[in-house]
Amino acid sequence: QETYTLRFNHVLGPNEPFHKGFTDWSERVEERTGGGLKMDVFHSSQLGVEEDIIEQIRQGANIGQNTDAARLGNYVPGIAVVNGPYFVSTIEEAYALADLPTMKKWQQELADEHGLKVVCFDWVQGFRNFYTNKEIREPADLEGLRIRTPPAPIWQESIRALGAEPTAMNFGDVYPGLQQRAIDGAELVYPNITAANLNEVLKIANETKHILLVNFQVVSSKWFNSLPVEYQTALVEECRTAGQETSEVIRQATEAARQKLIEAGMTIVEDVDMEAFRQAGEAAYEALGIVEAKKQLQSEMQQ
């Protein structure tokens, strides 16, 4: 019996729940295939930059990557809506996306035309909020604030639509950048704050919940198709199980991180005008030209 190896890369640190989730996924796949399919997980981008890895995957390498809808949107534009502001509002809604015909069509297109097989995307990192040193209740409060975002235009459009000045910056520069006021805040999830000790330089968490970040696990479709069918099933099913478990762990970890931050003296702003932010967010879809894609998915969701 031929054995297969998948080297799986992700950008997160080894203490993040996702890393534990990926190793769980890997152990179960290995167990279920009797060691026929092994997964070797690399944290902190040890195998390389996310975009490089995606290109390697497209060339058929036995490498996998945890990525987001914004990056996949480079290949199939519509898919980027998943990364838009206020697109889904619960974890359950995110899981349900997998069954929508249009999502299936886009994944097929990714696999057939770009060589990228989405194994699953039941990995939800939680709500992103604005963390600042000034209280934010409505879009106008963000005016003129330089908010660090990941360096991707789709992300920057979303943040601009919500009222802030998106500022691209290396994650490593964020701590000193905040300390020295090169930026005024960041938009992240709660566990990012505790992991990078950003509460040492940020005082206020504004719960705008503007993006529910859904992550995608991709491998090479050429490599995936070369696997025996039962290995393919094992990889996909265990991906979904581990992903949903991890999302639950993160939900709890987020609550724990929030509690820890409150104890550490961080102010939490809960009474945010969500409707105003939701409306402001629409501008991002227009700027990115994915209004139709969004409508399509939303109508399928309601059926």
């Binding site: 497209r58 060339q59 480079n74 290949y75 235009p153 789709i154």
Partner: peptide
């Protein structure tokens, strides 16, 4: 590489 990755956008800029 320049040929096969031509669809890869630079810094995500469309």
């Amino acid at each position: 590489l320049s040929w096969v990755s031509r669809a890869r956008s630079f810094q995500g800029i469309p």
